[in-house]
Amino acid sequence: MLVLFVLVILYVMFRLLGNPAILIFYSTKHHTASELKIIEAELGPLAGPISFPNFIYYFKDMLTFHFGDSLFGAIDGHQTVIGAIDAALPYTLMLFGIAAVVGFIIGLPAGIFTSFLRGKKSEKAVITAATLLNSIPFFVLAIIVYIYVAGYYHIFPLRGTFPVTDLTKPTIAGVENAFYHLLMPILVLVAIEAMGHLLTMRAAMVSVLGEDFITTARAKGVPEKDIMLHHAARNAMVPVSTRMALEFAFLMSGAVIVEVIFTVPGMGTLLYDSTIKDNITVAEGGLFIISLVVIFAYSLVDFIHAWIDPRIKV
């Protein structure tokens, strides 16, 4: 359902520009009617004039991933849009997936740990640092990291490009190479993502720790560690997992930006280039695929949610 909804929005968005074929037509040198016909044919039904059959074709084509050809020649040797996406998607999935999982793995325990430090000076330090990091936009942090780590000290490569086969057909050397190139962008994403989780988790923990049943558990002689991990953490997970869903969209936008800065040839770079060049078909296909990824991640969260809290059923 959400997918169809996204399609509607994309259609409205892109069609508000007018007929793409005409736009391109005016940018060519020879304004002849036959030229227009040729362009329309090249674009396929994706970019024909606004009409009902065209709209239906649009749906059919989008849902079957026929995004047509790239407008301005091949991108990295891929003439079709789907080919270009196929080449770029693994990078983004890798970046997004690893950042989401690692951010979660680091952020939650860190949040729980911070709640241990209640009332101490170190807690204030952690919270200040986390708030600062969490509020820095992705591109600022990415640029700073890029300039220092890659630009000044050459610890990591200046260009993030590496063969896609390192990801699709992994060998030990290939994974190593991929890791070497992707580490910096992942770190940037994880830093911001994990700090967000840390803050939410800590806030949730603090409110749960004030509840009566925690005092009861303490009176029962449950060791502090178990109180934190079993009694408090599971209750505190509820708001965190709700936030996770929102975080995915945020993280995806971050991944796109970070890719551009570190020149990783993923979806971000693809989208960026196509938008700059008015490469409408590529932009349309790219946006659609990214939306699909986020929608898929959303639906995973719902399952996690039901497992955490038995009351959620109601």
């Binding site: 009566d212 049943f213 009861t216 009176a219 009694h231 599971r234 209750n235 809290d309 009351r311």
Partner: peptide, 18 residues
Amino acid sequence: WKDISIVFQGAMNSFNPV
């Protein structure tokens, strides 16, 4: 609990809901 146990005020919230 072993030597001293306590029944807290407000039994509503004395149990962990999960």
